[in-house]
């Protein structure tokens, strides 16, 4: 039973990070219909910014997280302005290839600067908590609490603020939003900034129990894609629920079936689901 709850905890940890990364991806997809293959690289850059500011400059964990969020948000906006905006009327293959180009560039750049070796990100929260007979590392609690509070903040932002509701309106109906005078450029930049910041925060939360290296975003971005396909491309609740589904599937699958094939579970699930329902699990079926 204890082991079972340990897996629940693992699932929650994984699921909340996956959800956070998938949220950024799904927001960008909802607004611009770009599957941003570079999102995993943004996540990786976020981890490096936190790592460097903490290890080389001795900055506090939370300050480092904030700096990473700002830096990656700016980087994401730069990508939108320089790459995705000029390509918005291009054939659909082009933006995908450009996103892959950005991804390759960022990875190679980081690798040239800091090498390919694995690094461990320090964290001030190394305690092991003992709750109801379960040993829980404090960082995991932090991940779960941090990720879900960030989701809550994002939810409030999208629901309660003017800018937020503009983003939602545009995600639901691009042409309509255009007609009522929404500044599409500003919304696009804002969305990219949010998605970048989410990725950076996710990376800073997750990296201490994982490793930092240039290819760290690869697997994550693919899983994030699986999640947003599961949850319906562009759907915010779908990203969160999908993240949890994959997180739990991996935690339990890895434990009860095989750790070797843990990473394959998400993809196998995708193959099975898309074979049965080509439009994804929660899509409304209009398009």
């Amino acid at each position: 039973m204890e082991l079972f709850f340990q897996q629940v905890l693992n699932g929650l940890t994984l699921g909340s990070i996956y959800g956070l990364v998938a949220l950024g991806l799904t927001l960008v997809y909802g607004i611009l219909h770009v599957p941003n293959f570079a999102h995993g690289a943004l996540y990786m850059v976020g981890a490096y910014v936190s790592y460097i500011t903490m290890v080389d400059f001795g900055v506090n964990y939370w300050v480092a997280m904030l700096l990473a969020a700002v830096a990656v948000a700016l980087l994401a906006v730069l990508c939108e302005r320089l790459v995705f905006n000029p390509l918005r009327h291009a054939p659909p293959i082009h933006d995908k290839i450009a996103a892959i180009g950005i991804m390759l560039f960022l990875e190679a750049l980081v690798q040239m600067q800091w090498g390919a070796e694995f690094r461990r990100m320090p964290t001030p929260y190394t305690d092991i908590l003992d709750i109801a007979g379960m040993t829980i590392p404090a960082q995991r609690v932090l991940i779960i609490a941090g990720a879900f509070s960030l989701m809550a903040v994002l939810h409030l932002f999208l629901k309660k603020t003017m800018t937020g509701s503009t983003i939602v309106a545009m995600a639901q109906n691009r042409e309509g939003a255009f007609l009522v005078g929404i500044d599409a450029n500003r919304v696009a930049m804002m969305t990219f900034a949010i998605s970048g910041a989410l990725a950076a925060v996710g990376a800073t939360l997750f990296a201490p129990i994982n490793l930092v290296y240039p290819a760290m975003g690869h697997l994550l971005i693919m899983k994030a894609f699986v999640i947003i396909i599961l949850g319906g491309m562009g759907s915010i609740p779908g990203a969160i629920v999908g993240g949890l589904i994959i997180g739990f599937a991996e935690a339990f699958g890895g434990f009860y079936i095989s750790t070797d094939y843990k990473d394959i579970i998400a993809f196998a699930l995708l193959v099975v689901i898309l074979s049965i329902k080509p439009t994804g699990l929660f899509s409304k079926g209009v398009h």
Binding site: M222, F225, Y261, F267, A268, L270, L274, G280
Partner: peptide
């Protein structure tokens, strides 16, 4: 037969995952 029922982005993402499954299988 499975993947080509999917359109555009879905197809690209799906095949990205297929490529990764192939890699994992060869590795494991």
């Amino acid at each position: 037969v499975i993947s080509l029922r999917l359109k555009e982005h879905y197809f690209a993402i799906f095949t990205l995952c297929v490529g990764f499954i192939i890699y994992l299988l060869l590795d494991k």
